[in-house]
């Protein structure tokens, strides 16, 4: 299997250094070759299992975090907000 590692890296928001590209390519191809050994399971479908039912939460307000607690880990903040490079959209 030939994997478009550049495309996958871009989708993953990763940039792979040129000198590591070859190893990543090879490793990925080996791993994919390994996982491809998985046999197909015949006559089975993946329906949602009602036995997997989760309990839903009551619509009751609970206290939120203090803003300082939210922002204390942010690499950059200003005016009570997290700061990111200017977005175009």
């Amino acid at each position: 299997m030939n994997i478009d590692i550049k495309h996958i890296a871009k989708l993953s928001r990763l940039s792979i250094e040129e000198d590591k590209m070859e190893k990543f390519q090879r490793d990925m191809e080996n791993i994919v070759a390994m996982v491809e050994k998985l046999p197909a399971v015949e006559n089975q479908t993946l329906a949602v299992d009602p036995a997997d039912r989760m309990e839903l939460r009551k619509d009751e307000i609970r206290p939120s975090l203090r803003r300082e607690a939210l922002l204390q880990n942010a690499p950059q903040s200003a005016a009570g907000c997290i700061v990111v490079p200017k977005t175009v959209e």
Binding site: R57, D59, E60, I61, R62, S64, L65, R67, L70, L71, A79, G80, C81, I82
Partner: peptide
Amino acid sequence: KTKIYCSCKNSFGSEVNSNCCPNCT
């Protein structure tokens, strides 16, 4: 009253980043 996946208040026009918890952030 609350958000879809956490118990933070669902309201418009609150102070920035005041209706937030570990989950919705």
